[in-house]
Amino acid sequence: MLIVKDLHVYYGGIHAIKGISIEVADGAIVTLIGANGAGKSSTLRSIAGLIKQKSGSITFNDVDISKLSPEKIVESGIVLVPEGRKIFPNLTVMENLMLGAYLRKDDEGIKRDLEQVFELFPRLKERSWQKGGTLSGGEQQMLALGRALMSDPKLIMMDEPSLGLAPILVKEVFDIIKKINAQGKTILLVEQNAFAALNLTHYAYVLEVGEIVLEGSGEELIRNPQVREAYLGV
């Protein structure tokens, strides 16, 4: 589905991504783990078209998307749930959700997906006319995920979805990610909670200073002594 080859990204004079290559198979959950500054978010932002790569290719369903605008990338079926949620605090829950569908013209499909979002997140239905900024952190994360689903994506990229949430909400977020994947959505996940992410993922890459240093199934990396010491604290 998604193939990133030899990706190089610069911020000014900083070489943030140094030739990484990753693949995300259709229907899979793939995770990027690593310390702050490793290049995880930069990778997602580059795939989403928010920052342009210096070189390398990004192919989605056999189409090169590396030079497309962010809105064209959303149209192609890729959506990013950004770090920090980035909901619109002065708009209602319903308005935030409908903004996720702003490129769509299929009214029946939008109605269907809205019902599915409310089924997945009943609290959003209860608070549909409440302003986004008045929601709790966990509810705002649900809103960000729901907004992404409203674009009817094939691939959802999630940047630190559990960041800043209480442990009980972290478990809820990971349960929701499992449900979204079970509904047929492919997921590329960046997550600071390495243990939870590796238990969830089908395949994972470990980034250090813009380079991939390890890769394998979640089970393989959980057993890897280097990963256990550096990221799992065991």
Rank of each mutant, 00 (worst) to 15 (best):
P153A: 00
N181K: 12
V170N: 01
E139M: 08
I177P: 02
I177Q: 00
K178N: 05
M142R: 02
M150G: 13
A194D: 13
E191I: 01
M158I: 14
S136D: 08
T134C: 05
M150C: 10
G138L: 11
A166S: 15
P161E: 09
G164M: 13
I180K: 01
T201W: 14
L188N: 05
A144Y: 09
T201H: 13
Q141G: 11
S151R: 06
L165Y: 04
L188T: 02
S136E: 10
V173A: 05
I177V: 14
A166L: 04
L149D: 02
A166F: 00
M150R: 07
L165H: 09
L188Q: 06
P153D: 00
L165R: 06
P167G: 10
G146W: 04
N199V: 03
S162R: 06
F174K: 10
E139I: 01
I180H: 06
K178L: 02
A182V: 07
N193A: 05
T134H: 15
N181C: 14
L155E: 03
I177S: 02
K178Y: 01
I180G: 06
Y203H: 13
G132R: 06
D159R: 12
N199D: 10
L189G: 01
L198N: 14
L198S: 14
D175K: 13
M157A: 03
M150D: 06
E139Q: 14
R147S: 07
K171M: 14
L149F: 02
G146D: 10
L169C: 09
S151A: 15
L163Q: 08
A148D: 11
E139H: 09
M158L: 15
K178W: 01
E139G: 04
R147A: 09
I156G: 04
L189A: 03
Q192K: 08
S162T: 10
K179G: 00
K179Q: 14
G184S: 11
T201Y: 14
E191D: 11
P153Q: 00
M142T: 01
T134Y: 15
I180E: 04
M142G: 02
H202Y: 00
N181W: 09
V173W: 02
A182D: 12
L169D: 05
K185C: 10
L189M: 05
F174I: 07
V173K: 02
L149R: 00
L149H: 01
Q140D: 00
L163E: 12
I180W: 08
I180Q: 03
S136H: 08
L198E: 15
T134M: 11
Q140M: 03
T186Q: 11
L135P: 11
L145D: 03
Q140Y: 00
G138F: 11
L149I: 03
H202Q: 03
V173F: 03
M150H: 05
L155W: 00
L163V: 08
L143M: 12
G137P: 14
E160W: 03
L169M: 15
I168E: 04
D152A: 13
M157R: 03
I177M: 02
D175F: 07
A197C: 06
Y203T: 02
N199W: 03
M158V: 09
G138Y: 10
K154C: 10
E160T: 08
K185Y: 07
T134G: 07
Q140W: 01
L149E: 02
F195P: 00
L200G: 13
I156P: 15
V190G: 12
T134S: 15
L143R: 13
M150T: 07
N181D: 07
G133Q: 10
L169Y: 04
S136Y: 04
